[in-house]
Design a protein around this nucleic acid. Structure first.
Length: 433
RNA sequence: GUGGCUGUAGCUCAGUUGGUUAGAGCAUCGCGUUGUGGUCGCGAGGGUCGGGGGUUCGAAUCCCCUCAGCCACCCCA
């Protein structure tokens, strides 16, 4: 019989991995909720057409798709945004604005796995719909930063790189790029570090840039400006007219007011591949550029209409678990064991007390304590304490020769080593206090 | 989907120019019996050497195919 293994690019979650997943999901959830977002979820598969609306026919080869018994073309979700857009469009009139939703779906993409990318992964999605205020853009970025901070990252480890499509569009047009070439220019900008300089120049030439504007374009495209300085100083560095930067200026003001300027920098090279972004765009990167993007997002004011809903401005981002975990590991910020540690370990040091064990264990559990015991028959306390240590118990409750007759046990604090005798009746208050 | 590298126990790896029943450390499990915790001693289980086919008297070792992993490209929602 052939041995089975997990499909390419998927993961099994053994207790240690599952504990890490729950830990991460716990952080996502905690941060979302304290920032005022509500959790939503949808089906793990949708009509194939749902994904074509946003991304076109080309997306199909990247999807796991199938036909059901009713001849319906379906696809396992590769992203959550179309589901979210569908959900918002369906109840748009009934939902109070702004809509602040988050979700933590597992997603599947039929791509070759490589560093930072698997075929099935988790992604934290945060979306804020129904307002076009830059406060919303800034709040999304703030929420992302809040999560990064929650996991122990600092501005020395990661940066939010921010750009704005309208700003870049104005710059490009001022440099002589025609309206219908803007999308091509975005894509070129996105690839600027992946292609040789000559090819970049050649491609840029086709967009209508001449030698001098090309140089300035290149300069702006590669410029990174920290967001801590005063806006006038930042604007000056870009060396383009102030009025072209007004959208970024508005966002800057909000980021500064949220107190996260040191986490952010402006980078006109960030455009995101997606055509549907309409305003701000941003990505979270490890500072040295060692890994791919930790998170990415931006404003997409036209998307809800594309899914048949009313005109609804929106901004949001997605953060995958794979790159995030890699970065935390790179920085030594992965906690070594996040499986639930036991509160109490009950051990039997004398066979006469064995009849009392189940009752004590049950009473402790009924009081809400995470209680474990040994399945071994030995009364070797050394071995049993070792076992207690392995499940990281805070206390050991030792049942000895006096337990059966006098209803007393010894309680050992496994952190301090202190040990004292106590009556079974006082056990719960002693352990909880 | 394309290309490169890799594949021996749960993990990290040994395994001499193809030569008898494939090893170590860690981990796991057991024992070391009136005992108090990440020691120590002894012992056990666990691999058809990723899988299949071929060359050969003989393959973990050479060849082909396949699967998986890693890395890059495509793409990155």
């Amino acid at each position: 019989m052939a041995k089975f293994q997990a499909p390419k690019g998927t993961r099994d979650y053994y207790p240690a991995e599952m504990a890490w997943r729950r830990y991460l999901e716990g952080a996502w959830q905690r941060v979302s909720i304290r920032n005022g977002f509500e959790e939503v979820e949808g089906p793990i598969f949708e009509p194939l057409d749902l994904y074509k609306v946003k991304s076109g026919e080309g997306i199909v080869s990247e999807l796991f798709h199938f036909t059901d018994r009713g001849e319906r073309e379906l696809a396992i979700r590769p992203e959550f945004t179309p589901t979210l857009a569908r959900m918002v469009a369906e109840k748009a009139n009934a939902l109070s604005k702004p809509i602040k939703w988050f979700s933590m779906p597992n997603l599947c993409r039929a791509e070759r796995p490589q560093r930072g990318r698997l075929r099935e992964f988790l992604q934290w999605n945060v979306d804020l719909l129904g307002t076009d205020s830059p406060v919303a853009d800034a709040e999304c970025i703030y929420t992302a930063v809040d999560l990064l901070r929650e996991l122990g990252l600092t501005p020395r480890h990661v940066k939010v790189k921010i750009s704005h499509r309208d700003v870049v569009r104005r710059i490009l047009m001022r440099f002589g790029v025609a309206e219908d070439k803007i999308q091509d220019a975005f894509e070129l900008l996105d690839r600027r570090d992946k292609i040789p300089a000559e090819e970049f120049n050649e491609q840029a030439g086709k967009l209508g840039l001449d030698q001098s504007t090309l140089e300035r374009f290149n300069q702006v495209a590669r410029m990174r400006v920290g967001s801590q300085a005063a806006w006038d100083d930042i604007a000056e560095q870009f060396a383009i007219p102030q009025e072209d930067l007004e959208d970024l200026a508005a966002l800057h003001e909000q980021l500064k007011a949220f107190g996260i300027a040191e986490w952010c920098e402006y980078d006109m090279g960030i455009v995101r591949g997606l055509a549907y972004y309409t305003g701000s765009v941003f990505e979270v990167h490890e500072v040295s550029g060692a890994e791919r993007a930790i998170a990415g997002g931006g404003r997409y004011d036209k998307l809800i209409e594309m899914f048949g809903g009313p005109s609804t401005p929106a901004v949001g981002f997605g953060m995958g678990d794979v790159v995030l975990t890699l970065v935390l590991a790179d920085k030594g910020l992965l906690p070594d064991d996040v499986t639930p540690a036991a509160d109490v370990f009950v051990l039997v040091a004398d066979d006469s007390a064995r009849c009392k064990m189940n009752g004590i264990v049950g009473a402790l559990r009924a009081a809400g304590l995470h209680t474990r015991f040994s399945y071994k028959t030995t009364t070797n306390v050394g071995k049993l304490l070792k076992e207690a240590g392995q499940c990281r118990a805070r206390f050991a409750v030792i049942l000895d020769a006096k337990t059966d007759q006098q209803n007393t046990v010894s309680v050992k604090n496994l952190q301090t080593g202190e040990q004292s005798e106590t009556g079974i009746g006082e056990l719960v208050p002693v352990l909880k206090g």
